[in-house]
């Protein structure tokens, strides 16, 4: 249940359920990354995670990815 973005493998699709920091949440929301499923393009080992939605790619630092909770079922 409580999976985090840092554990998601490259190529998987998930929903970002909970983002801790208010400003970061607002920025992700604005770009549409909280609207629905996002694709994890790259999980760089102990580095950033690159997620994609509708052709927009976003790099999120590993510390942040550790804190973002995801829903794997919602990604289908």
């Amino acid at each position: 249940m409580s999976d985090v973005l840092a554990d998601v493998g490259s190529g998987e699709a998930v929903r970002l359920v909970e983002v801790p920091d208010g400003d970061t949440r607002a920025r992700l929301l604005r770009l549409g990354f909280l609207d629905g499923a996002v694709e994890c393009r790259h999980q760089i080992r102990s580095g950033p995670v690159i997620v994609r939605r509708n052709g927009t790619e976003l790099a999120l630092g590993s510390a942040l990815a550790e804190e973002i909770q995801v829903d794997r079922e919602g990604g289908e």
Partner: peptide
């Protein structure tokens, strides 16, 4: 602590 990266590619 430092802040995490959030940047568009």
């Amino acid at each position: 602590e430092g802040q995490a990266l959030v940047t568009e590619l």
